[in-house]
Amino acid sequence: MIGCLCIHGFTGSPYEVEPLVDFLKEHTNWEIAAPTLPGHGETLQLKGVRYKDWIKHAEEELKKLMKRCETVYVIGFSMGGLIAAYLAVNYPVKKLVLLSAAAYYVNPKQLAADIGKMVKDTFRGELQNNDLFLRYKKKIKDTPISATFQFRTLVSNIRPILEKIEIPTFIAQGEADGIVPSKSAKYIYEKIGTEHKNIKYIKKSGHMICHCDENEELFSDILEFLSLETGTNLNKRLMNNYK
């Protein structure tokens, strides 16, 4: 039996990876787990929650899968990508998928473009129809400064261990991501120790990469990567996207 753990991002929920989870359930007989990290979900309750609580919860979910499955893969989105990387270093995970993984965060150029669009929508009286504004206004309001500090501490603690990743790894990054810049994917690709690594850039995707218009091709590439013995053949094709 194959198990696959999918980890969402900071201030997020399993909704962030839900399209990929549904795709894997439709095309495989794997056991898929997409837990909600402490303090996260539809209603944020992050006050007093520490980054170690997020890691511990992910560890517990991984251990449950490992008891039932001979082979386990881990997929992480945004902050969940950093947690997934930690798990890959410390547990016998077979393959790793990192989606918009936040080794770096906030893309100033794209963020400025997104804010510019919000300003234009404000003057047009259409701000309440701006998806980005609607998605993040409540998160910003409900996220205490202490939680942001915990997120940054998690990133600073996990970045140094990326070089210890020795398993096949697939990295995907949206070029129009206003939260995590493209240099984050490049940094991870160059930093991780494994020789079996693939990278894919999606030109029009924002941060919510699992919900982008090109997600069907992305999901097919992820499934192919996880199904191949080493991912070498996929690597040759995807290297055309590497910058």
Rank of each mutant, 00 (worst) to 15 (best):
G76Y: 08
L226V: 06
G231T: 03
K141A: 13
G9I: 00
Y187L: 05
Y189A: 06
G76Q: 09
W30Y: 15
D22A: 15
D221E: 15
L238A: 09
E214F: 06
A176K: 15
P19C: 09
T71L: 10
E31A: 07
K203Y: 10
T148K: 09
K47T: 10
E163G: 09
I55T: 10
A185D: 00
N233W: 11
E166V: 02
G48W: 07
V21T: 11
D131A: 14
G39W: 01
P35I: 12
R237M: 11
I171A: 01
F225K: 02
H196D: 13
W54H: 04
I202C: 02
K64A: 12
D121W: 05
Q150G: 04
F225P: 03
F23W: 14
E59V: 08
R159C: 12
E60K: 02
L44Q: 04
K204N: 12
N235S: 15
I2G: 08
K63V: 14
L46W: 02
W54A: 00
Y187D: 09
V89W: 08
E26H: 11
K95C: 02
V74Y: 10
T36Y: 08
I145K: 12
N215A: 12
T230V: 09
A113H: 13
L96F: 05
R50C: 12
L223H: 11
A103K: 03
H211F: 09
C212F: 05
L65C: 08
G174T: 06
G193K: 02
L24W: 05
A34G: 11
A85W: 01
L96D: 08
I165S: 03
Y73T: 04
Q173M: 10
V49Y: 04
